[in-house]
């Protein structure tokens, strides 16, 4: 049994975290941070404007292949736009959309799930009925409806992606809350004189962090895919603005002749989801005091 001393607040903390990770987690962290930096500084890093067309240099392959055109390191697309630049801008937008969407889902679903789990009765019935409805109807249909009514602007897109995942959060949170409220330590907290609100915040919430983190990471990947589906259907972010999903969607037609158009954004999506998932698992374990060093 090792005594857990208070963790010193500043520089040491980062080092402690780093030391507690294994190789894969280290790789995931490096990839994740690099992607965030690339996305944040895309305007500075990108060699070209992502929308600049040059019909003479259409469908040029990346560096090292025949017909490579100088400067376009990762090739060009069917309109002669730089794939690297588009991917960087696309990453920026996709990452932003996914984070915003997953967070909205988390807040909305988490709150409603908590309410359903704690309140029971009528409140629970209403919330869970809404959850069931959303599960029963394919979400693409709902998204199409919303986008058809409100038009497809970036704001509407964020809202749509946020609504996309809330029912999963709500289900998980409600289930966890119901399980945890059965635990003796909740009864102990009531016996100690805790009010329902105090118990919900102090005792219930910290115990449902782990499944929430996992769901958040899953939702991030799902949203990237949903966004590309909507873009492909022409309802997502409108061309010529690039997102990773739409680049894969439009590039699909050129797979046999210009595979790099799909490969580059697809690899970015893979790297993004990989690092999010691994980091999520690590966070989940970190959040659980029982799994830390004994």
């Amino acid at each position: 049994m090792v005594d857990i001393t208070a963790v010193p607040a500043q520089p040491g903390m980062l080092r402690t975290f780093w030391a507690s990770t294994n190789l894969i987690q280290k790789i995931a962290a490096i990839v994740g941070v690099s992607l965030i930096v690339l996305a944040a500084f895309a305007p500075l890093i990108a060699p070209f404007d992502p929308l600049d067309q040059s019909l003479i240099s259409r469908l040029r392959p990346p560096l090292g292949f025949e017909r490579y055109k100088d400067g376009f390191y990762l090739g060009t697309d069917e309109l002669g736009r730089d794939v690297l630049s588009r991917s960087l801008y696309g990453l920026r937008l996709t990452l932003g959309l996914a984070l915003a969407g997953a967070s909205i889902g988390l807040l909305l679903g988490g709150t409603l799930g908590l309410l359903a789990g704690l309140k029971r009765g009528f409140t629970e019935d209403i919330i869970m009925a809404a959850v069931d409805i959303q599960i029963a109807i394919p979400f693409t249909l709902i998204a199409l409806l919303i986008l058809a009514i409100f038009g497809s602007s970036l704001e509407v897109m964020v809202v749509v992606l946020g609504i996309a995942g809330w029912e999963q959060y709500a289900r998980i949170v409600r289930g966890e809350v119901r399980k945890i409220t059965q635990m003796p330590f909740i009864e102990a907290a009531r016996a100690s004189g805790g009010s329902p609100r105090y118990i919900a915040i102090r005792h219930v919430l910290p115990n449902i962090v782990s499944p929430l983190v996992v769901q958040f990471t899953l939702a991030l990947s799902n949203i990237v895919i949903l966004e590309s589906t909507l873009s492909f259907l022409g309802l997502g972010v409108q061309p010529p603005t690039a997102t990773l999903g739409s680049m894969v969607g439009y590039g699909r037609d050129y797979m046999p002749t210009a595979p790099w158009m799909v490969t580059v954004p697809a690899v970015m999506i893979i790297l993004l989801t990989f690092s999010v998932q691994i980091t999520g698992d690590w966070l989940r374990d970190r959040a659980d005091v029982r799994l830390r060093e004994r």
């Binding site: 330590f185 009864e187 016996a191 100690s192 004189g193 805790g194 115990n207 659980d288 005091v289 029982r290």
Partner: peptide, 21 residues
């Protein structure tokens, strides 16, 4: 809630009656 300070409980399962977090 105020009166509950006069009476306290000790539960059966010491593993489940303390919040692990």
């Amino acid at each position: 809630r105020a009166e509950r300070s006069k009476v306290q409980m000790v539960f059966q399962d010491p593993f489940a009656s303390l919040n692990p977090r």
